[in-house]
């Protein structure tokens, strides 16, 4: 990821001050997201909806 791309993402997230103070942490956060992105299962079923665990019915 280029410095320009990182700067754009930081601006979009409103984290300019934090990134200025902790640039390594911001880079690590973005690298972690990129690393994990491929591990998240992505369904192509347009009808699939979230069903949070907390709707599990009581017996």
């Amino acid at each position: 990821m280029t410095d320009e791309e990182i700067a754009a993402l930081v601006k979009a997230a409103g984290l300019e001050d934090t990134a200025a103070r902790y640039p390594a942490d911001v880079r690590a956060a973005l690298a972690q997201l990129a690393r994990h992105k491929g591990q998240l299962p992505r369904s192509s079923d347009p009808t699939l909806e979230p069903t949070p665990a907390y709707v599990a019915p009581r017996p």
Partner: peptide, 30 residues
């Protein structure tokens, strides 16, 4: 703490579409 900052910061860059993919996959896992 540095470790907390590092663990929380990724959430502010996470695309909404990823959150929804995870929530939808949760349905299938359950």
């Amino acid at each position: 703490a540095a470790v907390t900052r590092r663990r929380l910061l990724p959430g502010l860059f996470l695309p909404a579409v990823d959150y929804m993919h995870a929530a939808r996959r949760r349905t299938q896992l359950l």
